[in-house]
Structure formats: C-alpha cells, structure tokens
C-alpha cells in the first residue's frame, strides 16, 4: 500500500492507494500514529485509490478511530469507491464512521 500525507491547516490528510488488508493494516496504523496520537487531532483518510479492503483493513480503520476518539480528535473518511462503501454498509460501519463524499467535503466538515 502507498501512503502519503499532507497537512491542510490543522488537518492531516492521509492518502491511501492499493490494498488495505492484513498485510498493510499495520503500515497504515504506523503511518497515521504521529497524527492520531495528538490531542484534538483532525484526520482525513482519503481512500480514493483504495481498490480492495477486507475485514482486516476495516479492523485497522476501527482501531484508528478508537485512538482518535481517545485523543478527543475527529476522523473523516472520504472518496470511497462504490464497492468499498458497500463493504462499510454491510458491516454497518457506515454508522460509526463519518464518511464524506470527497476530500473537500471532509475538510469543510470539521
């Protein structure tokens, strides 16, 4: 998985590309730790280029969400492909994540 980050004001935007699975979930958690370990952090995970996610990848996202909450921060997920959004829906994770249509909506929603 390719992970790139950029800072937009006080928001960290993490762009993910490739497969989010058991092999890459630790990579994602490591890459985002420096952002979610700060109090009141604001984080956007842009998943525009994620072409595959499985239950391990979903578990990694839930783990990050919990860390963000522990630090009284906010996490947004944006740019989900339709079939990736479907996986969020059937696992009912759509109800616990703040899912935004695209990155600009996510940035404006903090």
């Amino acid at each position: 998985m390719e992970i790139t980050t950029k800072i937009n004001g006080d928001v960290a935007v993490i762009n993910l590309e490739g497969r989010l699975d058991l092999n890459s979930s630790n990579q994602l958690k490591d890459a985002s730790r420096e952002f979610f370990s700060k109090d009141n952090c604001k984080l956007v995970l842009n998943m525009d280029r994620v072409d595959f996610i499985n239950s391990s990848g979903l578990g990694a996202l839930v783990s990050i969400l919990k860390e963000v909450r522990n630090h009284k921060g906010e996490l947004k997920i944006s740019n989900l492909a339709e079939y990736v959004k479907e996986i969020f829906d059937i696992t009912q994770l759509s109800s616990i994540f703040d899912i935004c249509e695209d990155e600009s909506h996510a940035l404006n929603s903090f």
Partner: peptide
C-alpha cells in the same frame, strides 16, 4: 460489538 477490530469476515 460494532466497534470491535475483528470478527467481520464471516458476515461479509
């Protein structure tokens, strides 16, 4: 437990 980090595979 919706917020568990595991246990979704079979459901999927």
């Amino acid at each position: 437990d919706l917020e568990s980090v595991s246990g979704r595979g079979i459901r999927i």
